[in-house]
């Protein structure tokens, strides 16, 4: 129960941050990606601002055995890159540019995103369902 409460609080603070930073506005995200248009650097401030407390948190985590509620802390990052990381990130970046939404803001804007937001969420979930089949094909291409 306490785990779920803190998960709710973390999700809520994440959503509030996405709202305050303007990252639920697709024009701001596209403005950042559109280097040859009317470039909007806001996203750099958001990412920089977000990395700062998280970098401190990783330092704190390195000095602890477990998280506050007792579960194990995440393992060290996997050093292997692999083709799925590259192919997946390229596909994600394309979709991110096309609509100006990534998964966090897509969920955070559910209440005010209108039909466009709902359609995006439905397509994103469909993509997540299709992903394992796509992964098999990418693996086959990579090993060919």
């Amino acid at each position: 129960m306490v785990r779920n409460l803190f998960a709710f609080l973390a999700g809520g603070l994440f959503g509030a941050g996405l709202l305050v930073s303007g990252m639920v506005d697709t024009t701001k995200v596209q403005g950042w990606l559109d280097v040859f248009g009317n470039w909007d650097p806001t996203l750099a401030f958001v990412l920089g601002g977000a990395i700062l407390p998280m970098a401190i948190a990783w330092q704190v985590a390195a000095r602890r055995r477990t998280a506050v509620l007792g579960s194990a802390l995440p393992e060290k990052p996997d050093p292997r890159l692999g083709h799925n990381l590259v192919v997946g990130s390229l596909l994600f970046g394309m979709g991110w540019g096309l609509a100006g939404l990534c998964p966090g803001p897509a969920m955070a804007s559910l209440s005010f995103g209108g039909w466009g937001g709902l359609l995006f969420l439905a397509a994103m979930i469909a993509g997540m369902i299709a992903a394992p089949a796509v992964r098999v094909r990418v693996d086959r291409l990579a090993s060919a």
């Binding site: 596909l91 994600f92 979709g95 990418v138």
Partner: peptide, 15 residues
């Protein structure tokens, strides 16, 4: 919107 959502869904799971 649909193309973007599919790409984001597939891409983030692969990556």
């Amino acid at each position: 919107i649909v193309a973007a959502g599919l790409l984001v869904g597939i891409g983030t799971r692969l990556a």
